Simulated assay, not measured.
Amino acid sequence: MARRKGREISGWLVIDKPAGLTSTAVVNKVRWALQAKKAGHAGTLDPAATGILAVALGEATKTVPYITDALKCYRFTVRLGAATNTDDAEGEVIETSALRPDRAAVEAALGAFRGDIMQVPPQFSAVKIDGERAYVRARDGEEMELAARPLFVDSLDLIDMPDADTLVLEMVCGKGGYVRAIARDLGRALGCLGHVVSLRRTWSGPFDLEDAVSLETVEAEAQSPALDARLLPVETALADLPELRATDQGAARLSHGNPGQVLGSIEFGEEAWASYQGRPVAVGRYMGGELHPDRVFNLG
């Protein structure tokens, strides 16, 4: 098997994704612009959605789970009065309603969508059914019984109701959430139906729009030191974990995947990351003076 060519470059590049592109297409553009050997993203955005898409390069790909698991914030607009087969404006209208709720009814309904809830993914989603993506079957006209999945919703607030047909909402939630499903289920709970007409992710874990660059900037600065300088450190993704300092001997052991001595004191068994000379060495569990690594970084 041929080895993938490219630079051994590590870090995070946060993109303000435009509408119309898949998350994979954005990652491929970033990989090309940085001539990176390895790249991935932390949390898919639908093609029609915009906002924060954090692209991990090189050793940063080892920290992707910490962003995937982190809370994320979405600002989205719901159109009332119609359900679509995709739960957004890209799909076909399958049902309509003349009923419209007032603001008080909307506020009252939102409470059922906060906290730990169960959510059925949209028919047009990347959920796998017998090894095949649900959206592939949905495109063929198949209607599936998708299992409900747990989702933690930290907050869901009505930001604006500019007219009787439109809601502007903001949601902070954990991993695995479908904003389209929230719009669908809220519309049904209100008795008026609904679907998403616009969606923007405004922050994801430690990354927000202040960190983001446009794809136009990526293209303009492609394969230049200016774009390299925009990379955020690998450890940015570890902001929610405590940092411990590895000793000389500890760093050497950790770099080979062995338990290593660290300085600092946190709760026994707590997850943490170890640094050495200002760079991350490993992530693992603190076991009384030592870090037992789960992931090891090779940053030279």
Rank of each mutant, 00 (worst) to 15 (best):
A252V: 12
V172F: 04
E290L: 10
T22N: 04
G278K: 02
A19I: 05
V26D: 11
A274F: 02
P280K: 06
T166K: 00
V281Q: 10
R285A: 11
T77Q: 10
A60N: 03
A104P: 06
A246M: 01
K5F: 03
R75D: 15
T24S: 13
V172E: 05
S204T: 08
L110F: 07
M287I: 07
K128Y: 08
L232D: 05
P225F: 13
E290Q: 13
K72L: 01
L215G: 13
T22K: 12
V55P: 02
T84P: 12
E210G: 13
D140C: 11
E143C: 04
L110N: 11
T63F: 09
A239P: 09
T202F: 03
A42T: 11
A272F: 10
Y135R: 10
E170H: 06
L71D: 14
L232Y: 13
L232T: 01
E143G: 09
A89G: 09
D165V: 04
L244H: 01
D140S: 14
L193A: 11
S155V: 00
A48L: 14
A33C: 02
D157L: 13
A272T: 07
A164H: 13
D116R: 15
L232K: 14
V26M: 07
H256R: 15
G58Y: 00
S255V: 06
E243K: 02
G289P: 03
P121E: 02
R79M: 00
A246D: 01
